[in-house]
């Protein structure tokens, strides 16, 4: 290969890949500001001729998007908060507290990762139905309150906490609860931020289970609401793109701001132990 052409080749290829990756998102944004009908003309305009917020107004005024947004925000925040508590407690226990059968139990949990979540969905639906919880926020929040992945992530990180630190506190007479709250939690802060970002994004983007568990529009999260809207308004591209923007933008911004934490979680989670 010609040594002078190589940098051009590498950067050109990267630029092309990046353009392909980002183009649909750019296009979504552009079309969302177009007048009704403009998006369905040929050739498709790259930018709106007369930018308008009409689609957004329509979404929030008549399509119930505000409600879906609030539902998504509430459900995702609740899942993040509650699962953080459950996973942190369990992950720390697996890493630092000794009890009979610890390794065995942990291996059972890791083994359960091979079972796809969908296998549990039908009985879970029936369980919630008999409990009168179908079509409530709880139907989406309860099953997501703990995850093997979250426990695994916290455990991996907590194993780095020196035992001497905990033993010293025990010698001083501190109870296990106090040790956890005052010594362990502050040390776990970085992984908790990572886990929070990962959990929030996953909860926000989740589709199949909310689609099953939420049967009425009042409780729809954004993805479920958008999917239902898109079946009604197949031809209304501008409206649909605005709906996609409202759904995607929050997670995209969150990712851009907290990218460092997100990517670290991705790498930690994928490392074979």
């Amino acid at each position: 290969m010609n040594p002078r052409a190589a940098p051009w080749l590498v950067n050109g290829a990267l630029l092309m890949l990046a353009a392909l990756a980002v183009f649909p998102l750019f296009w979504m944004l552009s079309v969302s500001f177009m007048q009704p009908g403009e998006a369905n003309s040929l050739p498709p305009p790259l930018l709106p001729l007369h930018p308008t917020l009409l689609n957004y107004r329509e979404l929030f005024a008549h399509a119930g998007m505000g409600r879906y947004f609030a539902n998504s925000l509430f459900v995702s925040s609740a899942i993040t908060l509650l699962s953080l508590v459950c996973n942190t407690l369990a992950g720390y226990a697996f890493a630092k507290l000794r009890f009979a059968g610890r390794e065995k139990l942990f291996n059972v949990l890791i083994g359960a990762l091979v079972i796809p979540a969908q296998v549990a969905m039908l009985p879970l639906f029936l369980l919630l139905k008999y409990a009168g919880l179908v079509n409530t926020y709880a139907a989406v929040i309860l099953p997501a309150m703990a995850s093997v992945f979250g426990i695994f992530l916290v455990r991996q990180y907590a194993r780095g906490i020196p035992d001497e630190l905990l033993e010293a506190a025990r010698v001083d007479g501190a109870g296990e609860g106090r040790i956890f709250a005052q010594i362990v939690l502050p040390l776990l802060k970085p992984i908790l931020v990572t886990l929070a970002v990962l959990t929030f994004l996953a909860a926000w983007n989740d589709f199949m289970w909310p689609l099953i568990a939420l049967t009425g529009q009042r409780h729809y999260t954004l993805p479920v609401g958008l999917a239902s809207l898109s079946r009604e308004h197949v031809q209304d591209s501008g409206l649909m793109m605005a709906g996609a923007v409202v759904t995607v933008l929050p997670v995209l911004v969150l990712f851009l701001v907290l990218q460092r934490y997100y990517l670290r979680g991705l790498l930690l989670g994928s490392v074979k132990q």
Binding site: V31, L226, M241, A244, T247, V248
Partner: peptide
Amino acid sequence: FRTALFAPVVTTLVAVAVIWRYLFNSQY
């Protein structure tokens, strides 16, 4: 570049699927 290439991963599947359906529409 890394951020741009990774961006599709964090997007909401349903939302980008809706975009995809529009991009691949046979009329417009």
